[in-house]
Design a binder for these strands. Structure first.
Lengths: 168, 168
DNA sequence: AATATTTTTCAAAAATATTTGAAAGTACGA
DNA sequence: TCGTACTTTCAAATATTTTTGAAAAATATT
């Protein structure tokens, strides 16, 4: 298989996976394109390679920068902005975990603590079902939160080593 | 706060989180409703409580059953079918991890192994960027896969205990 | 086997999310 | 300060996903 064909397949596949994850397809495609490009690319470059509009590139590149996955590169003497993706996949992975933790786990804690306020009769089966679900979710969310926190702060070798140990 | 108000808030919040996760909002709302209901509910019951159509209930309940999160309950002497959610949140969590692993990680491995076929000049920076990205993703996806496999098979106390240990 | 009840299907409608492209904004150099 | 090269914005257009609801299928009852 030719390199260009491989790149295209990768970009398509990454886009499909992204959209299953609830992430904008174009965003993940741009990310994939930048990942497999040795040199930083300009907006025009991305537009051309992915056949998408300027506005679309601008928006999604901004989102990727918000996620900390892509950086703006200014070349001396060039007026255009260029963009480059973090190539260390372990860093990318940690960054994604960090963002998702912030965006997905925090709202869970907020709603759960609000729901602690619910009053009811401890004899009532409905009340018990409610309280037990809430408590169960809280417990697992807390553990998930500390685990992800550790992961985000961890060095790859340390974390992977520990994982291997615990799977023995 | 009253129990009913708490349930409603929970259902709303869970729906919002679900849709951020790329999961149908109604599906997560039905799941939330069944989680906080002590008794199994019929389709009519769900329709009424969530103010949604029969077809919508039917589809999403089927999806929840495919995910293994909800079970059909037949009451003797009743013609209607009832539905009940698994209440043990640890089991729910494992089930979700199991499904997502199957649906999200497997396609990653498929595309990666296809991309191993790409030929190129090892001196070429573009080829190197490509190969290194692919290899980095493969490495992390493999580790994630074994970790999730362990988690899915694990007993709660064992897994949580080990996590605590590794975070020391 | 005719009728009643319940579930399933699926095409069309509604709701959401994404993309476009042109106008407005910004920064630079002469 | 003006013109040029670029970037950003955002309302409208498109695309995608979800929901509805009525008809068909399935199942139980008489």
């Amino acid at each position: 298989m030719e390199l260009q064909e491989g790149k295209d397949k990768f970009i398509q596949a990454w886009g499909t996976l992204g959209s299953q994850w609830g992430i904008n397809r174009t965003m993940t495609q741009i990310h994939a394109l930048l990942l497999v490009s040795a040199e930083p690319l300009s907006a025009d470059n991305i537009m051309e390679q992915l056949q998408i509009s300027r506005g679309n590139v601008n928006m999604n590149v901004r989102d990727l920068m918000d996620w900390g996955l892509v950086h703006k590169i200014l070349k001396p003497g060039e007026r255009k902005e260029f963009f480059s993706a973090e190539k260390d996949i372990w860093k990318v992975f940690k960054q994604v975990v960090k963002e998702r933790r912030k965006r997905e786990l925090e709202p869970v804690f907020n709603i759960l603590s609000e729901l602690q306020q619910v009053q009811g009769d401890p004899q009532d089966a409905e009340y018990k079902a409610f309280i037990e679900s809430i408590e169960g979710i809280r417990k697992i969310a807390s553990r998930a939160d500390s685990t992800l926190d550790t992961l985000v702060k961890a060095d790859e070798n340390w974390f992977m080593g520990t994982l291997l140990k615990m799977m023995k």
